[in-house]
């Protein structure tokens, strides 16, 4: 079984990092994984996106046009990638910056104001972790506990950021739980 997750937003939103943490969690769970960043000539503030492919079999093509899931952190990303998501997938919409949903009726949509939540916790920088945690809680592409371990490991060198990001993860999880009630 192969799962693909597209993370997309603008430069500085921590797109590559949250994708890397997910890829790490997939590796920890014994899956084959490919982390494929966009590395084209992008300007500051332009779009940044990154595909994570995970599979219990060796991954063939790491280049995916139609991912199963999407984490959209800004409007241009949602507009660009929402139409490519496979039916039945999860689309997480950062409702702090995106005024509407994907318009897709055949996906599981999750509207989360990740920026506002992160600002309340003390830093907008943790918005990517709120989104990642909310996405994982809903899609269950990896175990939540594994994800938390990988977040701790990622920030191991920056101890002051661990508690902020763990709080961000917890908020993301709680919110997803409430949304699915």
């Amino acid at each position: 079984m192969q799962t693909e997750v597209m993370f997309a937003g603008f430069g500085g939103q921590g797109i590559l990092l949250s994708a890397k943490i997910l890829a790490h969690a997939a590796l920890e769970q014994g899956l084959d994984v490919a982390w494929v960043p966009s590395y084209g000539p992008e300007m500051r503030g332009g779009t940044a996106y990154c595909m994570v492919v995970m599979s219990d079999l060796p991954i063939g093509s790491p280049v995916i046009r139609n991912p199963l899931h999407l984490v959209a952190m800004n409007l241009p990303s949602l507009e660009k990638f929402a139409p490519t998501v496979k039916p039945g997938g999860v689309i997480l919409v950062n409702s702090s910056l995106i005024p509407h949903g994907s318009g897709r009726g055949d996906v599981r949509e999750l509207l989360v104001p990740v920026n506002e939540i992160a600002i309340k916790l003390g830093s907008v920088k943790s918005a990517n972790i709120v989104a990642l945690s909310a996405f994982v809680s809903r899609s269950k592409v990896v175990d939540y506990d594994t994800l938390i371990r990988c977040i701790q490991e990622e920030f191991a060198q920056k101890k002051d950021l661990i508690s902020l990001n763990l709080k961000a993860a917890e908020e993301g999880r709680k919110l997803t739980y409430l949304c699915s009630l």
């Binding site: 994984v33 490919a34 982390w35 494929v36 590395y39 790491p62």
Partner: peptide, 10 residues
């Protein structure tokens, strides 16, 4: 190619 260089894998 660029993908081999840029991609992360185990």
């Amino acid at each position: 190619d660029g993908l081999i260089g840029q991609m992360m894998e185990p």
